[in-house]
Write a protein that binds this DNA or RNA. Structure first.
Lengths: 224, 224
DNA sequence: CTGTATCCATGGCGATACTG
DNA sequence: CAGTATCGCCATGGATACAG
């Protein structure tokens, strides 16, 4: 966090925020993560040592507050941190509009499922326990299959079969579901082009896109 | 610009924007700088080699466009770059509200005069050529004295005496004028406490704060 | 679960000087 | 005016293993 040697508020803000990973940690906190390993799931490629360092830095700066609640470390945003919402939103809108291209390295099934499960519209799901399986046919090994369960109004991701009844089975490549989730393409277009397939009774098949939805950024208008 | 390995638009945006100095260069372009040495004045502590590198990076990313106009290199923001205005604004607001403390290293007379001259309300100045001298009594040597001239509606900073008639003579320490400019303190309070002094005929003395004004960020409401 | 502790390589970036 | 060229440091952060 070297100083820019400028009195400008933008420079002072960036002294804190331009360090690698910092904004992404803030994003996770804004999305509701409060514990160390919860945060890690949102920034899986970040080393735990560095995450600790960033959390300490944000705490020193007054952006977050750390507390032990029932023996667990709990990180919460202060008012100062909460207001970074405007900054993260502006970045999200700009990134959505202007950085369309994703490299293969940007795709990550675990991260995708984690992101979907925490911000999909569960109120659209049936009241009963419901389970969907996802299969990414271009991802080899264990990371190619995932289960999404909504039980008692609580969403859950699994990388193993929980053993419940399957309501729908979805197959696509990783890029397709990522692009659908980001709103780069629509469910209907992807289904029509057979880039994604939903195997389920007709009524459920029609409902599933509404269960999963799209990320909040998907609603951002794209440049003409 | 190492990848974060995330499809999230915030992550993709930060891959470009979290590199040191990048946002400050964009800020300069948003404020109207278009040429290399003009940009340098806004980021004086940045090495020219690094500025070149950042400009190339921003060009590759599509944020700016470079052209030779009349044998001069000219950098302009594309639509993509123009929309970073929202991001820079959000950072400016947040920085203004929450990063109040300035270290001595954040103070820079040249930068302050440059910033004042390019965004002060010249329409408030007299029609005739008008000149003000600034003296920072805590800054030793040449950098302690500055002249601000508005002539034919065009503002100009000098670090030498242009030799015109002096309309007002302002004295303060560097921190005081910086804080006034940022809006951390008001002109009236600073004058009352003798933290700044204006030597001029009474009518002009009263008018000068309105001539200089405050930076646009000064209008941002501070947290209670 | 929530971190620490090392270690190491890389390359970013600061400083300075120079050029067409 | 608008950059190049070089150099070298040191801090950043990636990787991995381990601990209370």
């Amino acid at each position: 966090m070297t100083s820019y040697g400028q009195f400008c508020p933008v420079a002072k803000a960036m002294e804190l925020l331009d360090e690698r990973w910092t904004i992404l940690v803030v994003r996770e906190l804004l999305l509701g993560s409060r514990h160390f390993n919860e945060l890690r799931r949102g920034v899986p490629k970040m080393s735990p040592a560095l995450l600790t360092k960033r959390l300490r830095g944000l705490e020193r700066a007054g952006v977050i507050r750390r507390a032990e609640v029932g023996g667990r470390s709990t990180y919460t945003l202060t008012d100062m941190g909460q207001e970074l919402h405007q900054v993260v939103m502006a970045l999200s809108v700009w990134g959505t509009r202007w950085i369309g291209e994703l490299g293969d390295a940007d795709l990550d099934p675990h991260l995708l499922m984690w992101d979907i499960h925490r911000s999909m519209p569960i109120e659209a799901w049936p009241r009963r326990r419901t389970m969907i399986r996802f299969r990414f046919h271009d991802v080899i090994g264990k990371a190619g299959t995932w289960w999404l369960v909504v039980d008692a109004g609580r969403p859950q991701v699994c990388d193993f079969d929980p053993g419940y009844d399957l309501d729908a089975d979805i197959a696509s490549d990783l890029r397709t579901l990522t692009e659908i989730w980001r709103g780069d393409i629509g469910w209907q277009d992807a289904l029509r082009d057979n880039r994604i397939e939903i195997d389920a009774p007709a009524a459920i098949s029609r409902a599933v896109p509404g269960w999963i939805g799209q990320s909040t950024a998907a609603a951002v208008a794209r440049p003409a």
